[in-house]
């Protein structure tokens, strides 16, 4: 019977380290380069809008007038196109996933105006 032939492997598994982890008390470490969520280093962003145009999921909205860059993490499909095409390389793909939420909200980032910064200082 096949089940007995496979028995050796199954029996051996009793003495091996489990293949699974005890989620949620333990989690697997995220490998480098895992596609979790998109981050923007806003001080570098020039609000060019390339990320918005290239996004297949329409997740990013760039408002030049208000100087905001916003992303809807629940629309984003983690394809990485925006990260690849950003001319200032200010977008990065971070390994941590977007936390669960009860409402879908956009993350709006205020992009500092470099010129305003100069006059202020």
């Amino acid at each position: 019977m096949g089940s007995f032939k496979l028995g050796g492997m199954t029996f051996g598994s009793l003495f091996k380290k489990p293949e699974t982890v005890l989620y949620p008390f333990e989690t697997k470490p995220a490998p480098a380069g895992l596609k979790g969520h998109v981050e923007n280093e806003v001080s570098q962003c020039i609000l060019c809008g390339i990320c918005q145009k290239s996004c297949p999921a329409d997740a990013i909205v760039v408002e030049k007038k208000e100087r905001t860059w916003s992303i809807d993490p629940f629309r984003c499909v983690q394809c990485g196109t925006c990260v690849r095409l950003c001319p200032k390389k200010c977008l990065t793909m971070e390994p941590s996933y977007t936390p669960i939420a009860t409402t879908k909200t956009c993350r709006v980032l205020q992009v500092p105006d470099p010129k305003a910064g100069v006059t202020e200082s």
């Binding site: 019977m1 032939k5 050796g8």
Partner: peptide
């Protein structure tokens, strides 16, 4: 490991 599984499956009477 796969070869063991495969051999079991392909020779199993049931």
């Amino acid at each position: 490991e796969y070869t063991q599984i495969m051999n079991t499956l392909l020779t199993d009477t049931s």
